[in-house]
C-alpha cells in the first residue's frame, strides 16, 4: 500500500511538474509593445522668442543679387517681329506693378531681347521698342517714370540656345533687373 502511495505521489509530482512547465511556456508575456510603454515627455524650455522680422526688414537685409535671384518680377514675351504688349503679358505686368508698388523704393532696368530670326541691327532697335512698350505699360499702371530704365540687347543674350519655335518664343522677351531697392 505504501508502495502504491509513493508511486502515486511520484506520478502526481511528475504530472504537476509537466503541467507547471507547460503553463510557464504559455504564460510567457508577449514582448512589450512600444506604444504601451509610458512616454516621458521632456518639457523643454521654450526657445527664446526670435525677434519677429517684418517683411520690410527681410527685404532690407537681402542684397540686390539675392532679390534678383528670386526673380520677383516675371518676364513677358512677345510675338514674332512685334513689340506690342500681349494680353497674357498684361496680367504679368500688373502683378509686377503691384510688387513695385509694395516696394516703393525699387528701381528697375527693363531689358528688351529678341530671337535669332532677326538681324543684329534691326533686332537692337526692335528690342528697344519692346522695352519701351513694357515701360509705357508699367507707367500706365502707376509706376513712376524715374523708377524705370530701359535697354536693348537685341539677340545677343538668348536664354534658350535652341533653334526652334519654342526657343525663339522664349527669347522674344522683356525681362527685369532690380538696380536699386
Amino acid at each position: 500500500m505504501k508502495k502504491i502511495l509513493i508511486l502515486t505521489l511520484a506520478c502526481l509530482l511528475v504530472l504537476s511538474f509537466t503541467i507547471s512547465c507547460k503553463k510557464k511556456v504559455e504564460q510567457t508575456p508577449p514582448p512589450p509593445q512600444a506604444k504601451e510603454q509610458p512616454k516621458v515627455e521632456r518639457v523643454e524650455e521654450p526657445p527664446p522668442p526670435k525677434p519677429e522680422l517684418t517683411e520690410e526688414e527681410i527685404f532690407e537685409r537681402k542684397t540686390l543679387e539675392e532679390i534678383n535671384a528670386e526673380k520677383p518680377l516675371q518676364m513677358i514675351h512677345f510675338d514674332f517681329d512685334k513689340f506690342f504688349i500681349r494680353d497674357d503679358a498684361k496680367a504679368t505686368l500688373e502683378s509686377n506693378a503691384s510688387w513695385m508698388k509694395k516696394w516703393g523704393s525699387v528701381k528697375i532696368l527693363i531689358e528688351g531681347h529678341c530671337d535669332e530670326k532677326g538681324t543684329e541691327e534691326y533686332n537692337l532697335a526692335l528690342g528697344e521698342k519692346r522695352a519701351k512698350n513694357t515701360f509705357d505699360y508699367l507707367v500706365s499702371l502707376g509706376i513712376s517714370v524715374d523708377r524705370l530704365k530701359i535697354i536693348s540687347y537685341g539677340k545677343s543674350q538668348p536664354i534658350d540656345s535652341g533653334h526652334n519655335e519654342i526657343s525663339w518664343e522664349r527669347n522674344r522677351r522683356a525681362q527685369f533687373t532690380i538696380l536699386e531697392k
Partner: peptide, 27 residues
Amino acid sequence: KGTSFGTNFSPDGKWMAFCSTEDESNS
C-alpha cells in the same frame, strides 16, 4: 543717350554715322 550702336565711318574720315534710341526709344 539711349541705346547707341551701329557706327559706320565715312571713307573721307570726316564723319561717322550711328544709331541711337535717344528720342522716345525709337532708333
